[in-house]
Design a protein around this nucleic acid. Sequence first.
DNA 1: TTGCCATTAAGTGTTGACAGTTGTCGGTTC
DNA 2: GAACCGACAACTGTCAACACTTAATGGCAA
Lengths: 245, 245
Amino acid sequence: MLRPAANPARTPRTASFVPLIQREIERMIGTGELTGGTRINESTLALRLGISRGPVREACRALEQIGLLRSELNRGFFVREVSTKEALDLYDIRAGLFGTAGRLSAAIITTVQLRGLEELIGAMDAAIEAPDIATFYTLNNEFHRQVVVASDNDKLIELYPLLEAELHLFRRRGLVLPGSMRTSNDEHKAILDALRQSDGTGAARLLERHILAGKARFLRTLEDDSATEARPGPLDPRQSRSKDR
Amino acid sequence: MLRPAANPARTPRTASFVPLIQREIERMIGTGELTGGTRINESTLALRLGISRGPVREACRALEQIGLLRSELNRGFFVREVSTKEALDLYDIRAGLFGTAGRLSAAIITTVQLRGLEELIGAMDAAIEAPDIATFYTLNNEFHRQVVVASDNDKLIELYPLLEAELHLFRRRGLVLPGSMRTSNDEHKAILDALRQSDGTGAARLLERHILAGKARFLRTLEDDSATEARPGPLDPRQSRSKDR
DNA sequence: TTGCCATTAAGTGTTGACAGTTGTCGGTTC
DNA sequence: GAACCGACAACTGTCAACACTTAATGGCAA
């Protein structure tokens, strides 16, 4: 399950537990095995991984910094829940950064990279025809990732996925609108064109709008939900004082 | 020096050591007490703060995540050094985020906040006349901070200073060009105008350029330095083995 | 002297234990 | 029956100790 050198208890110090645990917790959050609001039981988790609490705490402390966990004095670490306000804030930040990525990429993107994006767009078209939402979702993520990577800005390449991961902690997950796939891929095509022409400002504007369009869809989904759900009320009295938008 | 409840050893658990230590190390880096490349001696630091190594390690792990420290297996934590490439990358990211902050702020900034910015600009003019570089530096930082705060984007408010802090880890510090103060404040005035007119795109463009102008000055300083310094060579073969001060 | 190897001191990575806090459960009182 | 109270269990925050690695030192051979 973990075991850095497949070593039961005695450790030839070839790797630290901490990054492994960190990735493991990230994975558990990613798969929904750990869901928003739940507490991390240090002892149990340590036991389950066959190690002691020290490294687990260090990993949690790291995850707290990147926004996946939060800590409460004498109560430990909790999987963060992202409020509506925070989710919207994250969209704005991502829009800005993604635009920046595009501006930078436009100037230096290689033909190979352009070809890669083109292929992804083609694959997404196919996924739309199928229709195969899951595949589209994956390809779409990959498209975004490749644009960021093309910027050759290492810090950005590191930072951008963190913001996306944090967004996944929003209460209701999987807000994919099947109807939006086609327009979304149209936007991808426009973006690709701008990148092809080394049009930095154009690409930046398009990429920014691409994310903001996602934000708008997100908002619409929220409104639909709250209309359907017969007013969810002030549920969850503890936690998240969040003015929620 | 630390002591969360002025308590020598027995702890009425009213606050955790970790955030305190974290801030303490941040402070030490900020003041230059800890300089780039130096190793953090966990035992010594713990002893000096009158606590054990556990909390110190947790704090270091957190600081690693935000980019102020890096870790090396079996050698512990080191104060990070930011390469020229990374510094330039950071400028680009800050430019994008600062622009975003401006776009958001323009829509919602209050007259009180505008007044605050105006006063800062006035104070900076005075500092230029003096001339008082240190004061200008502080006021300038405050101006930037207030623009970001006006965006009301909490995540951005949290993120932006982290990037600035990381930039301070660049090898040579204090790259302030006295000559640039006047043009810099002129840019501030243009920014303020755009914000006053709720011109989001205009403010965004100006703010972005403001940071990129800083980047350009930064670059020029580098070139000047490397010209004067008799060619430093392909420095940084890969991360200072650092003889630890 | 110079280069190499064993020795050793210094310091990290991890553990297990302890003290203190939070929350729960049953009993008691109103 | 509901509100309060105290004991108990579960768990966090911190510590001290141990195992292991790194790098510094000194002796020895060439």
